[in-house]
């Protein structure tokens, strides 16, 4: 899933300063799963803003809507009948959703209420961690299921670097060293000889470095 974090309240309040009619938009997909921008979080943020603005003597009217998905035109278009009742949209969807809604309603600004952070997993209840960067050229078969592009702070292909200690990364002692995990897998699977193979340089052109990416399935186009 795409994991996001709510922005600091002060930052949100600052963005909303010029507006008194706000559409607060949530999403039922990833941001709901990571407990950041689903209908529950929309309701909480709406109450916080209302209370704050009331205390400031600048009350606001907030509409609360949570779409099934913000990255699909079918759902985004459902905003059409009422989006113009509001001066601005504050979105709790991920960065994709925020942009996509904005593209559909060019006369309305869509402000971000969250910082979109990573593609990750729910490691345990209330803990999400990163697993993938969408580099467009997966090598998980070579690194035995652990992604060094994402999980090594230096994206090293022939690790571990000299900062790996006690299985932890030099950047943060709470982060497991990706290459320590990879070496553990080599050992468990009796494949240590494979460690000696030098991994070739990565072709980053399939990643963001090659420019914004696009996928087309001609057979699905209508």
């Amino acid at each position: 899933m795409i994991v996001a974090n709510r922005k600091p309240f002060e930052e949100i309040i600052e963005m909303l300063k010029p507006y008194s009619k706000i559409l607060l938009l949530g999403c039922n997909e990833c941001v709901t799963v990571c407990a950041t921008g689903g209908s529950k979080e929309v309701a909480v943020l709406a109450s916080e803003i209302r209370l704050y603005r009331q205390k400031e003597g600048k009350p606001v009217e907030i509409g609360e809507v949570t779409l099934e998905r913000n990255c699909d035109p079918e759902y985004v278009e459902s905003l059409k009948p009422f989006i113009h009742d509001y001066e601005v949209v504050l979105s709790m969807a991920c960065g994709c959703g925020i942009q996509f809604v904005g593209e559909h309603y060019r006369d309305r600004l869509v402000l971000p209420a969250v910082n979109t952070t990573f593609y990750g997993v729910t490691e345990e209840h209330g803990v999400w961690t990163e697993r993938c960067q969408g580099c467009g050229n997966c090598i998980l078969h070579k690194t035995l299921g652990i992604c060094p592009v994402t999980r090594c702070a230096k994206s090293i292909f022939n690790g571990p670097c000299g900062g790996s200690q006690g299985g932890k990364c030099e950047v943060d002692r709470d982060i497991p060293c990706a290459w320590h995990l990879i070496v553990d897998r080599y050992r468990e699977l009796n494949m240590m000889d494979k460690y000696l193979e030098i991994q070739p340089m990565k072709d980053w052109s399939t990643s963001r470095d090659g420019g914004p990416r696009k996928r087309v399935r001609e057979d699905l186009k209508i």
């Binding site: 230096k154 090293i156 000299g162 340089m201």
Partner: peptide
């Protein structure tokens, strides 16, 4: 060398490169 992570330096908000690693 790979190089120390920028987190330890005087510009921790910098973007790092790591296009290739030290062995490459």
């Amino acid at each position: 060398l790979s190089g120390d992570h920028q987190k330890f330096g005087d510009h921790p908000t910098a973007k790092n490169v790591f296009d290739i690693d030290s062995i490459q």
